[in-house]
Amino acid sequence: MILSEKTVKKINDKLSKYPKAKGMILPALTLAYKQLGYVDNEIYIEISEIINVPQLEIAEAASFYTMFPKKPRGKYLLQVCNNISCALLGADAMVDRLEEKLAIKRGETTDDGLFTLISVECLGSCCTAPMIQINDDFHENLTRQKLDELLEGLKNGK
């Protein structure tokens, strides 16, 4: 098993609340992603066995949603909102700066496996633009200085 006992327990707990097992596809994928940082065929098989839904149906759903990457990403996932409210306040320039500082292009991961940089659609932080989501946290009202400090902090393991 790739899924941990803890994850399997969480899936089973939630499964008991759902009127139909297929409804558990997204919650199970989400829990698997939280543990592993990716999902793939082996995971679909394991989930399929727990919730008793065909593997194909799980794979099909997983293919549609952007939050289920098929490969592991960096320790810190940097998601820069690049939709209009953030773009009006310099989000494009912010992505350029991140590309320069991390020496990667958007979509790529640094060699040390620390950072993955992606540009994403609206994250619902329009009044506090520009912003970046790092793993679970929103960092808002960013300036060049705040962004640089943030990156330095992460590099130094803060």
């Binding site: 609340k17 759902y18 997204l26 919650p27 549609f64 949603y65 952007t66 939050m67 659609e121």
Partner: peptide, 12 residues
């Protein structure tokens, strides 16, 4: 009355 929090996965 029971409640479930169901989370999305990045689709407008």
């Amino acid at each position: 009355l029971e409640m479930i929090v169901h989370t999305g996965a990045g689709a407008y």
